[in-house]
């Protein structure tokens, strides 16, 4: 590879990211573990049982953060994808692709914990509640994004095409949410709805926020790690990759 300006720009920026992310990941990982430990201790031991649901409510400490992260990460993914598509910034493509599996995992976990919570609360694992249904469709959107990315061989084309899909998806998410909400109120009347506990004790709220923060830190850690791997793969012919993989023997 020559030392021309364009290549210097293209190959050095990822190298900087790679090094910086490598230095940051252990710290984020440590914070993640600490927050999860504190959050789970507070949630499972310190916080009092719910006056109606007993101990089964404790699953909200997982359910709510995963649901929030699932939705938030989709938007973040679409933003990165749009940046990558419009300004042709490869790092943004890498980030979008790296976010998708984590977002899908959180969405799946929120459905799973929702079902586990549903069993003691409603007596069934699954109800076609508006939020659960929206989350299910969100999971399909994630799967579509990842499937399209995987189906296209050319990396740049894969990034661009799935970016279009992510942007279409993010425009649709609110439309889907509101139509499902509407459908749900029309069909179910007043029977079953998932509502958070009307009054939440301070300790519960604090615990919930700690768990949300923990989920955040986990996402940052894992997404950065995945982005590093993706970078190595994309740029495997670049000099900076070879220098780093030889372990500085040069």
């Amino acid at each position: 590879m020559s030392e021309r300006g364009i290549q210097w720009f293209r190959f050095t920026a990822p190298a900087n990211f790679y090094d910086l992310a490598g230095r940051l990941i252990p710290w984020f990982a440590a914070v993640t573990v600490a927050l999860f430990a504190v959050g789970l201790y507070l949630g499972l031991v310190v916080a009092p049982p719910d006056y109606q649901q007993g101990d089964s409510y404790r699953i909200i400490y997982i359910h709510v953060p995963t649901a929030w992260m699932g939705m938030f990460l989709y938007v973040l993914m679409a933003v990165y994808a749009a940046i990558g598509l419009i300004w042709r910034i490869k790092m943004a493509d890498v980030m979008a692709k790296a976010i998708a599996p984590t977002g899908a995992l959180f969405t799946f976990l929120s459905l799973w914990t929702g079902a586990l919570w549903g069993r003691p609360t409603w007596g069934v694992y699954w109800v076609w509640d508006a939020r659960l249904t929206s989350m299910l469709i969100l999971l399909f959107l994630y799967l579509g994004y990842m499937a399209l990315h995987a189906a296209i061989d050319d990396r740049q084309r894969a990034s661009n095409a799935s970016a279009v899909l992510a942007m279409v998806g993010v425009v649709n998410v609110p439309i889907i949410y509101f139509s499902v909400q509407w459908w749900n109120t029309l069909h179910q009347g007043a029977s079953i709805t998932v509502t958070d506990a009307p009054t939440m004790a301070t300790i519960m709220f604090v615990t919930l926020m700690i768990m949300v923060l923990a989920a955040w830190m986990y996402s940052v850690t894992v997404v950065l790690a995945r982005a590093r791997v993706e970078l190595l793969e994309r740029e495997r012919n670049a000099r900076w990759v070879q220098e780093r993989l030889e372990g500085g023997s040069k």
């Binding site: 499937a147 399209l148 189906a151 649709n172 439309i175 499902v180």
Partner: peptide
């Protein structure tokens, strides 16, 4: 959109379904 995104891909037909069917929820409901 899905038809365009799957142009020239192997198994494009099945992929269209995965990409597009979730987006069909609002018109279906209405």
């Amino acid at each position: 959109i899905g038809a365009a995104l799957t142009l020239g891909l192997r198994g494009g037909g099945v992929l269209i379904a995965l990409l597009i069917l979730p987006l069909y929820a609002p018109p279906l409901i209405l």
